[in-house]
Lab assay of single mutants.
Amino acid sequence: DVEPGKFYKGVVTRIEKYGAFINLNEQVRGLLRPRDMISLRLENLNVGDEIIVQAIDVRPEKREIDFKYIP
């Protein structure tokens, strides 16, 4: 289970104008929005990159997770 405030290693699987989709595993995916990136820009991410993200909002009923990147 993903818990708000905890850090997780994930893989960038898709990049859109509104953010990057990060997979923690095959069943768990969330969104990293540009506003939640500190010292990292969306255009510097590539599909396949491994990054450490912090879960900031977890909505299991909608199967949605918002992430934050903190270097």
Rank of each mutant, 00 (worst) to 15 (best):
S39H: 14
I65N: 03
F67V: 04
F7D: 04
F7V: 06
R33E: 01
E43A: 12
F67M: 04
L42Q: 03
E43H: 12
V28S: 06
Q27K: 15
D49N: 06
L45M: 10
P60E: 09
P4T: 14
R41L: 14
P34C: 07
Y8K: 00
E3F: 13
V11I: 15
R33W: 02
D49A: 07
L40D: 04
D36I: 02
I70Q: 11
I38W: 11
V11P: 00
R14F: 07
K68P: 01
V47P: 09
F21R: 04
R29A: 12
K68H: 07
R14P: 00
Y18L: 05
G48E: 04
K17P: 15
I22L: 05
S39M: 13
Y8D: 01
V47W: 06
I38D: 10
E64R: 09
Q54W: 12
M37I: 06
P60N: 09
R59Q: 05
N25D: 10
Q54P: 00
K17L: 12
I52G: 03
N23T: 12
V12S: 00
I56E: 04
Y8G: 00
G19V: 05
S39R: 10
K62W: 08
I38L: 11
R59V: 05
I65Q: 03
N46H: 15
D36P: 01
L40H: 05
I52L: 11
L42W: 05
V58C: 04
D57E: 15
K9C: 10
N23W: 10
V11W: 15
G19K: 03
N25Y: 07
K9I: 12
I22W: 02
N25H: 09
V47I: 14
G48D: 05
G5Q: 06
E64G: 07
G5L: 09
G5I: 03
E16F: 13
E64Y: 13
G19I: 03
D1I: 13
I52Y: 11
I51C: 05
L31M: 07
T13R: 07
R29Q: 14
N25T: 12
L31Y: 05
K62L: 14
V12N: 00
E43Y: 12
K9Q: 10
D49M: 14
D49C: 07
G30D: 01
L32C: 02
L45H: 00
M37T: 05
M37D: 03
Q54G: 05
L31Q: 02
K68E: 04
N23G: 08
I65D: 02
K62E: 11
I56G: 07
P71I: 05
P60D: 09
I65F: 07
F21T: 08
L42H: 04
E64H: 11
D36R: 04
Y18N: 05
G10C: 05
T13E: 07
L32E: 01
R35S: 10
A55L: 06
V11N: 06
V28K: 05
R33G: 02
K68Y: 08
V11M: 11
V47Q: 06
K62H: 10
R33D: 02
S39V: 11
T13Q: 07
